[in-house]
Design a protein around this nucleic acid. Structure first.
Length: 837
RNA sequence: GCCCGGGUGGCGGAAUGGCAGACGCUGAGGACUUAAAAUCCUCCGGGGAUUUUUCCUCAUGUGGGUUCGACUCCCACCCCGGGCACCA
C-alpha cells in the first residue's frame, strides 16, 4: 500500500523523460507531422495559473497526437526583449539582461516542474544576438525592397514608456496598452516603418483561407482593423481661387454626389491655410482652427465630441452638376483616412446630417426609398443611408437607378471625364517599428555625412547592443548617449558615421519566432527552408484573445514577406488557431498588476503538477473564462488519489497477468458490464479530445468510469485478473495526456517496463466494439411528448414489441386512458412517443 | 450606436432536436474510528399530493413561433461580458 506522492512521482518521471529524450523531435518525412504551439511568454515575475492553462491545453494536444503516431513539434521560448526589463533594470540599478535571464530561469523551472512535453533543445530567447541578428537580416531584406522606410510622422508617444507606440498599442481610445491609465500624446518624429499596407489586400483576402479553422471573431477583428472600403476619389475644382489645384475627396457613396451640399476638410488638411489666404473669415477661422488642431488624441472623445466646423469663405464646384457648394473645415474629418476631405451628403449620411443641420446647410434627397413614404427634406430627423433599398432622384441622367447600379455607372463616368476614379482605401497603416529604448533589436543602418543612410552590410551582422548602456528611462534612446555604440564608420567610404539609435518594436521578435523553432541553431540563415517546409504550417496555435490583432496580423504580414523572399511557400503560417479563456480570480483576469495571482509553483508544491493541470482542464471548457476556486481544486486532488488507490490495490495481483485475449465467451455479467463501460468511455473520451476539445467532459467521463469501477468492488469477486488489467490500463491511458506523471507511475505499477510514452492510444478492434455495445437499453416512453415511464428492454427491440410493452405498462396505460393513438414516434434504442387525440 | 460572445440548481458546469441538471464543489445523513482527519456509501432545483413507496406539476433570461417532442432551431425583447467606435 503506497500513498499517492505527486512530488516524488513527478520528479521521477520528469527525469526519465529527459534521460530517454522522449520529447526531442527531428523532421522525418516518413511520418505525419504535427506542429502544436502555445504563444511564447514574456518572462516577467513569476508564472501563475493563468499562464499554465494555456500550456496545459497545448500539452494535452501534443501528447494525444504523439500517442496517435504523429511526429510532434512542441517547442517553447521567451519573448525576452521589452520595456519592463529596462524599467526594472533602472529601478534596481542592474542590467536588463540580468533581470531577463533571472526571469527566464524562473519561467523555465516552472514549466519543467509542470512536466510539459517540450523539446527543450529548441528553446529560443529573442534577446540573444543569435536570434535578433535575423531580425536585422529581415529588416535589411525589407529595406532593399522598399518595405522598410523612414519618414517624419506624428506618432503616439507614451510619456511613461518614454517611447513611441504603434497604433495597435494605443488602446481604450487613447491610452497606452501597458499603462492603461496613461494618455498617449502626439509628437512629430523621424520613424522607421514597415510597409504593412503593401500587403493590405492579401491580409484581408487571405482571411478567407482561415475561415473554419480560426475563431470567427478573430477573423472579424482583423477584417475590421484592416478596414477595406471600396469607393471613389473625386476632384472638386475650386470655384473662386483661380489656378488652385482641385480638392480630392474620397467617398463610398458616389451615387449620392448630387446630394452633396458642402465639402469638408480635415483641420490638418494642407489646403486649409491656402484657402484661408485672403478670405474675409480668416482671423476668426484661424482661431477655431488652432483649437481644433490641438484637441486631444483620445479617439473616444472624438467619437462622442460635438461636431464643430467653420466656413472657409470659399466654394468648390460639383463635377457632376457644376453646382457651387461651400467649403468647410470640421473636426470630425480625419486627415489620416482617405484624402482628408469629404463631400457632405446630409440626406444620406448620419454624420453629415448632424453637421449640416447644426450649421444650417441645405439637405437634399437624392435617393428615395423604393417602398413606403417618400422623404421630405424639411421633415427628416435622420439620414436615409440604406444601400439596398432605393432609387436615385434629382441626379440628372442617373435618375431611376438603384444605388448599387449608380455607383458603378457614376464611377465609370467620372473616370471617363477625368475627374475621378474607383479606389480602395484601407484603414490599416504602416507599422511603426521605431522605439527609443535600449532593450530591443538595434536597427542596422548608419548615417554617413557623405553618403547619407547606409545599411549595415550583411557580413557585419549582428549589430550588437552595447553591454554598458546609460539607462535613465527619459528622453531619447539610451543608445544615442552611448558613444561606443553611436560612433562607427561608413560601410561605403570608411569615414566617421553615426549609427541609428532606435531599436525595433518587440512585435518584430514574435512575428517569426515560430519559424526559428524549426531550425533554432542555424548560424547561416534564419532557418533552413526545407525544415520549415516539413513542419509548416503550424497545425495548432494556442493563445489568448488579447493577441487577436497585433501579434497575429504582424505574423501574417511577416510570412507573406518571407514568401516573397522565397523562403517559404505558404500564404498563411497558422492553420488552426485556438483562443483559450482567461483564468480569473474575484471576477477579473489573473494578473500581476491586479495582485490576484495564484502562483503556479505554489500549486505544484501543494497538489502536484498533475492535479493543477487537471483542474484547469476540468473546471470549464477551454475557450471560456474560468474562475479559480481553491475549494474546487480539492476535487481534482481527491480524484487522482482515488484512481491511484484503485490501481495500487489491484496492481500486485494483475501486474504479471497475461493480457486478455478479448474472448467474449465465458464472461460473467460483471465482466461484461465493466468492459462495456470502459470501452464506451474510451470512445467518448477519444471524441472529446480529437473532435470537440471538451476536456472538461472528457474528464467527467473518466470520473464516471472510476466511480463505476468502485461500485463494482471487490473486483476479485467475479472479474478475472486479465479483465481487471484491461480496465485499469485503459483508465490509465485515458488520463495520460492530462496527468502524465501519475499515468506513467500507474503504468509501471501495472507491470510495464517500457514507459507509457511508448504506448499508443488504444484503438478498439471490431470484436471489442461489439463488446462496447449496450445489450439492454433504457427507453423513455412518452405520451404526447411527456415521459410517463422508462422501460428497460433488450437492445434492438422492434417498434411493435416496444409499443406492446408500453401499452402493458400501467403508468402509460393511465395516460392513454381510452384515447386513440394517432401517431407513433419510434427511434430505435432511443425513445418511444405515443401521440393521442 | 454597430459587431461578436453569453444567460441552465447554492457554485463551476453537462446535455447540438429525444429522460434537463452528467461530473465536480458546497451542504446533509450514514459506515469505519476511543475520537478526529482521511476513506467508503446515500441524499441534495421549486411546488403539491401520497407520506415507509410513488405520482403529479412548474422550471434552462422574457414573450411568441416551428415540431410528436425545443436548453438546443426561428422571430422579437431584456440583462451581462467583450470588441469596434465620426474610417466618409
Amino acid at each position: 500500500m503506497a500513498d499517492y506522492n505527486p512530488q516524488e512521482i513527478e520528479t521521477k518521471w520528469q527525469k526519465r523523460w529527459a534521460e530517454a529524450r522522449v520529447f526531442e523531435t527531428e523532421a522525418d518525412s516518413t511520418k505525419p507531422k504535427y506542429y502544436v504551439l502555445e504563444m511564447l511568454p514574456y518572462p516577467s515575475g513569476t508564472m501563475h495559473m493563468g499562464h499554465m492553462r494555456n500550456y496545459a491545453i497545448g500539452d494535452v494536444v501534443a501528447r494525444v497526437k504523439r500517442m496517435r503516431g504523429f511526429n510532434v513539434l512542441h517547442p517553447m521560448g521567451w519573448d525576452a526583449f521589452g520595456l519592463p526589463a529596462e524599467n526594472a533594470a533602472i529601478k534596481n540599478n542592474t542590467h536588463p539582461r540580468i533581470w531577463t535571464n533571472n526571469n527566464v530561469g524562473e519561467f523555465q523551472r516552472t514549466l519543467r516542474r509542470f512536466g510539459f512535453s517540450y523539446d527543450w533543445r529548441r528553446e529560443i530567447s529573442t534577446c540573444e544576438p543569435e536570434y535578433y541578428r535575423w531580425n536585422q537580416w529581415f529588416f535589411l531584406q525589407m529595406l532593399e525592397r522598399g518595405l522598410a522606410y523612414r519618414k517624419k510622422s506624428r506618432v503616439n508617444w507614451c510619456p511613461k514608456c518614454a517611447t513611441v507606440l504603434a497604433n495597435e498599442q494605443v488602446v481604450n481610445g487613447g491610452y497606452c496598452w501597458r499603462h492603461e491609465d496613461t494618455l498617449v500624446e502626439s509628437r512629430e518624429l523621424e520613424q522607421w516603418f514597415l510597409k504593412t499596407t503593401a500587403y493590405a489586400d492579401q491580409l484581408v483576402d487571405d482571411l478567407k483561407q482561415l475561415e473554419g479553422t480560426w475563431p470567427e471573431r478573430v477573423i472579424t477583428m482583423q477584417r475590421n482593423w484592416i478596414g477595406r472600403s471600396e469607393g471613389a476619389r473625386v476632384k472638386f475644382a475650386l470655384a473662386d481661387v483661380p489656378g488652385a489645384p482641385p480638392i480630392e475627396i474620397f467617398t463610398t457613396r458616389i451615387d449620392t454626389i448630387y446630394g452633396a451640399t458642402a465639402i469638408i476638410l480635415a483641420p490638418t488638411h494642407p489646403l486649409v491655410t491656402k484657402l484661408l489666404d485672403g478670405s474675409p473669415n480668416r482671423a476668426d477661422a484661424e482661431g477655431q482652427l488652432a483649437r481644433m488642431r490641438q484637441t486631444s488624441v483620445k479617439t473616444e472623445d472624438l467619437a462622442t465630441a460635438e461636431k464643430v466646423g467653420f466656413f472657409t469663405g470659399r466654394h468648390a464646384s460639383n463635377p457632376f452638376s457644376n453646382e457651387k457648394i461651400s467649403i468647410w473645415v470640421a473636426n470630425f474629418v480625419l486627415m489620416e483616412y482617405g484624402t482628408g476631405a469629404i463631400m457632405a451628403v446630409p440626406a444620406h449620411d448620419e454624420r453629415d446630417f448632424e453637421f449640416c443641420r447644426k450649421y444650417g446647410l441645405p439637405v437634399r434627397v437624392v435617393v428615395q426609398p423604393s417602398e413606403g413614404e417618400a422623404l421630405v427634406e424639411v421633415e427628416m430627423t435622420a439620414a436615409f443611408d440604406e444601400h439596398q433599398n432605393g432609387k436615385l432622384v434629382n441626379s440628372g441622367p442617373f435618375n431611376g437607378l438603384s444605388p448599387d447600379e449608380a455607383i458603378v455607372k457614376m464611377t465609370a463616368f467620372a473616370e471617363q471625364k477625368g475627374f475621378g476614379r474607383g479606389e480602395v482605401v484601407f484603414r490599416l497603416r504602416d507599422w511603426g517599428i521605431s522605439r527609443q529604448r535600449y532593450w530591443g533589436t538595434p536597427i542596422p543602418v548608419v548615417y554617413c555625412p557623405e553618403h547619407g543612410l547606409e545599411p549595415v552590410p550583411y557580413k557585419d551582422l549582428p549589430v550588437l547592443l552595447p553591454p554598458h548602456p546609460k539607462l535613465t528611462g527619459e528622453g531619447e534612446s539610451p543608445l544615442a548617449s552611448t558613444p561606443e555604440f553611436v560612433n562607427t564608420t561608413c560601410p561605403k567610404c570608411g569615414g566617421p558615421a553615426r549609427r541609428e539609435t532606435d531599436t525595433m518594436d518587440t512585435f518584430v521578435d514574435s512575428s517569426w519566432y515560430f519559424y526559428r523553432y524549426c531550425d533554432p541553431h542555424n548560424a547561416e540563415a534564419p532557418f533552413d527552408p526545407a525544415k520549415v517546409a516539413y513542419w509548416f504550417p503550424i497545425d495548432q496555435y494556442i493563445g489568448g484573445i488579447t493577441h487577436a490583432i497585433l501579434h497575429l496580423l504582424y505574423s501574417r504580414f511577416w510570412s507573406k514577406v518571407m514568401r516573397d523572399l522565397g523562403l517559404v511557400k505558404h500564404n498563411e503560417p497558422i492553420f488552426r488557431l485556438f483562443t483559450q479563456g482567461m483564468i480569473q480570480k474575484g471576477g477579473v483576469t489573473m494578473s500581476k498588476s491586479r495582485g490576484n495571482v495564484v502562483g503556479a509553483i505554489d500549486m505544484a508544491e501543494k497538489y502536484g503538477a498533475d492535479t493543477s493541470r487537471l483542474y484547469t482542464l476540468f473546471a470549464a471548457p477551454p475557450e471560456k473564462d474560468l474562475e479559480w476556486s481553491e475549494e474546487s481544486i480539492e476535487g481534482s486532488w481527491r480524484f487522482l488519489n482515488r484512481v491511484f488507490r484503485l490501481v495500487d490495490k489491484h496492481a500486485s495481483a494483475i501486474r504479471d497477468t497475461q493480457n486478455w485475449n478479448f474472448d467474449a465467451k465465458g464472461m460473467t455479467d460483471k465482466e461484461r458490464d465493466l468492459i462495456r463501460v470502459t470501452y464506451q468511455t474510451l470512445l467518448r473520451v477519444t471524441q472529446d479530445f480529437e473532435k470537440r476539445w471538451h476536456f472538461n467532459s472528457a474528464i467527467a467521463q473518466i470520473m464516471e468510469l472510476t466511480n463505476e469501477i468502485y461500485l463494482s468492488e471487490p473486483l476479485e469477486n467475479g472479474v478475472r485478473p486479465e479483465i481487471r488489467k484491461e480496465v485499469l490500463e485503459i483508465l490509465t491511458l485515458l488520463l495520460a495526456p492530462m496527468t502524465p506523471h501519475i499515468a506513467e507511475e500507474m503504468w509501471e505499477m501495472l507491470g510495464h517496463e517500457d514507459g507509457l510514452w511508448k504506448a499508443p492510444w488504444p484503438v478498439l478492434t471490431d470484436g471489442q466494439l461489439e463488446l462496447a455495445k449496450d445489450q439492454e437499453v433504457e427507453i423513455p416512453v412518452q405520451v404526447n411528448g411527456r415521459v410517463r415511464t422508462i422501460l428497460r428492454v433488450p437492445a434492438g427491440l422492434s417498434e411493435a414489441e416496444l409499443v406492446a410493452k408500453a401499452n402493458a405498462d400501467p403508468a402509460v396505460a393511465r395516460h392513454l386512458a381510452a384515447r386513440r393513438i394517432v401517431k407513433v414516434i419510434f427511434r430505435p434504442n432511443k425513445l418511444l412517443n405515443l401521440v393521442v387525440e
